[in-house]
């Protein structure tokens, strides 16, 4: 579903991502961990088509991001760490805008908005302007916007930040449901317990370079993910 091959992205002289390669297959929940500034957000943004990159290739469902960016974006959704949405719109207008851009048929769109907004308990707030939404409510709206066109691949940057425990629980269920249907999820997180329980595979990045990747069992063995992460960080210091 997502193939990252030798990705390199620099900001000036500094390499934010250095020769990174990953493969996320359909049905997988893939966790991406690393300390602050390790290159997680840059990688996710490059995969989402937000940031141009100098070297390497990103393939979404077999399509090259550089050659066919619109086809790639049509098949995926991206949720940033800070959901800065269009504050001049109401919740429902924003969702309809996303529905229009991703060409979701109006009746299907209505059903999905109803389903997810009710599930995340923000249906009653959808007529409110986004400027009146709290961080958590915006995060929930960003989740609905991501799920509204049923993408094959969902990219999420710290998706659990700002969500209440119930919404976090629901998000985990939604992630499993999405992957059970053949979709894939690639997300970054600092919450290692969540990554350990939720992910099928995990990648650890440090200073833009991949220092470990594979199935959860392969990476952590019998230790906890936290111990392995800290150990690897020290090894590559």
């Amino acid at each position: 579903m997502l193939q990252i091959q030798h990705l390199t992205k620099s900001y000036g002289d500094k390499k934010a991502v250095d020769d990174l390669s990953l493969h996320i297959a359909p049905g997988e929940i893939y966790g991406f961990i690393g300390h602050n500034g390790a290159g997680k957000t840059t990688t996710l943004k490059a995969c989402a088509g937000i940031l141009p990159f100098e070297e390497g290739q990103i393939l979404i469902a077999g399509q090259d991001m550089k050659a066919r960016p619109l086809d790639c974006k049509q098949q995926m959704a991206y949720i940033p760490d800070n959901p800065d949405l269009y504050e001049f719109m109401s919740g429902i207008r924003f969702l309809n805008f996303i529905g229009d851009v991703f060409r979701v048929e109006p009746t299907v769109r209505r059903e999905r908005i109803h389903k997810y907004a009710q599930m995340l308990e923000i249906e009653g707030d959808l007529a409110q302007p986004l400027s009146a939404f709290s961080h958590g409510m915006k995060q929930k709206l960003a989740l609905i916007a991501a799920w509204i066109h049923e993408p094959k691949l969902i990219l999420m940057d710290e998706p659990f930040v700002g969500l209440d425990p119930k919404a976090s629980h629901l998000l985990k269920a939604l992630m499993h449901e999405h992957c059970d249907k053949g979709g894939a999820i690639f997300f970054s997180t600092h919450v290692l317990d969540v990554a350990e329980k939720l992910c099928d595979k995990v990648a650890i990045i440090k200073e833009g370079r991949l220092i470990a990747s594979g199935s959860m069992q392969e990476v952590k063995g019998n230790a906890s993910l936290e111990d392995v992460f800290l150990e690897l960080e020290d090894e590559h210091a």
Partner: peptide, 8 residues
Amino acid sequence: WLPKSMPV
């Protein structure tokens, strides 16, 4: 990030 991540 919104317009840049959309299929337009």
